[in-house]
Design a protein around this nucleic acid. Structure first.
Lengths: 225, 225
DNA sequence: CGGGCACCTTGACAGCCATCAAGACGCGCG
DNA sequence: CGCGCGTCTTGATGGCTGTCAAGGTGCCCG
């Protein structure tokens, strides 16, 4: 069967795969499936067996924890170029969250077997995978820290300042609806709205729709630590 | 320099090192340092460079997050036989928490270089390391889930039922003071005490000091999910 | 233009839990 | 035995933030 040139090009863009040579990439390409989805589609349910991981090519995906009483919490917002599900796949446990598309998009599904094979044959690949997982663990620890030691205002400020660094500008464009961002910060939409209002009153930010101008970054930083 | 036989024996007990042969173990033993500590000693501070990881031989260690306002949160209670600090070491960032001994004990400090070398030369070791990190990530995600979707009573019940499984008995011996356990569950000691009282009133548990008998596991489970 | 609809805001209220304060309990030690 | 100290409990109070409810705004589409 002929190797899909486009799939190959996409795999090359995955940071994790930077250490692979052409032949190794082709092996991955043979088991990789593309998957186009539309808004609201569920990529996997909580509890589904994790036999591979995803690489998001286009669109947005939210990873959502589902509590017993129906409460939901967005753990992560996946943007194009990011992968998700690697860790769960490696221990062979079912997904602890479900993944829902926020809009139409496209993802690659890369089965587990190829990964194990690559770890066995390419130490540089192993190191890169380890580094990626470690970075994500670090982020999780930070999230636990923020959840357990910061209040609503501090979490919002922390998020805004963090996004500012990523977007390299003094205005932040929220990458999703305020309700989704609120959940990501473990807030209700109401509280999120109120906090933004407060910050605006203090002349620290200016809100217009999903665009938030940071008027006084130093003042913002002073809000938490 | 002569290889320390005792260090070697300890390294053999580390689950992560099960895939190593005798020669590889000896390489590790040459750079590994033993470290005896007493109660209250700080093994590393938040912000210290992480150039190795620890394996706890004896005693207890708590990993503590420190907020800007001085608030503390115990992220993890390390018991003998557990290792900690691997992930942070791999990305070369400073420790995000500090480690304090709850009592006298002993740990091994295993520098980073040996690990990288072992990953390069032994794929089985890589896989084991990956599996270990993934399992810990899974636990972190669970903790985020519990922090963000459960109330105090549910977290306590979840902890007790979880400990029961580990200790394989219908009574749980708290592995540390109630204040430490409370912090681990993101509660104040006061709230923890009150929750235990409530559970006792409902005839679900019986508390005597640090020993907690689980009288009605089904009833306990009914409290959360 | 006007209805419908998602998204967001605002207000009133309540509950959970932290905080502060004081007292009880256990335990080692002089 | 009685003191001192750390650990734990119990009570009163308040604040943060979730919940419920209603209203506002923008936007697409007929």
């Amino acid at each position: 069967m002929p190797t899909d040139e486009e799939t190959l090009a996409l795999l090359r863009r995955i940071p994790l795969f930077a250490a692979l040579d052409e032949q190794e990439l082709q092996r991955f390409a043979q088991t990789t499936h593309g998957h186009a989805f539309k808004r609201g589609e569920i990529l996997f349910q909580k509890g589904d067996p994790a036999e591979g991981f995803f690489f998001l090519v286009a669109g947005q995906v939210k990873l959502v924890l589902l509590a017993a009483d129906g409460h939901e919490k967005v753990v992560e917002l996946i943007q194009p170029g990011m992968s998700f599900g690697e860790a769960v796949m490696l221990i062979g446990r079912p997904y602890p969250a479900y993944a829902e598309a926020l809009g139409a998009g496209r993802a690659l599904y890369i089965p587990r077997a190829g990964l194990i094979e690559a770890v066995r044959s390419n130490p540089d690949f192993s190191l890169r995978l380890l580094a990626g997982l470690s970075a994500r663990m670090h982020a999780l620890v930070r999230e636990i820290e923020e959840l357990s030691t910061q209040n609503a205002l501090q979490r919002v400020v922390g998020y805004l300042v963090g996004e500012r660094v990523e977007q390299a500008a003094d205005a932040v464009d929220l990458p999703a609806s305020k309700a989704v961002i609120a959940s990501r910060l473990n807030l209700t939409p109401e509280t999120f709205s109120r906090v933004l209002h407060t910050l605006q009153e203090r002349a620290l930010i200016r809100v217009s729709g999903r665009r938030i101008e940071l008027l006084d970054v130093a003042g913002l930083r002073a809000c938490n630590g």
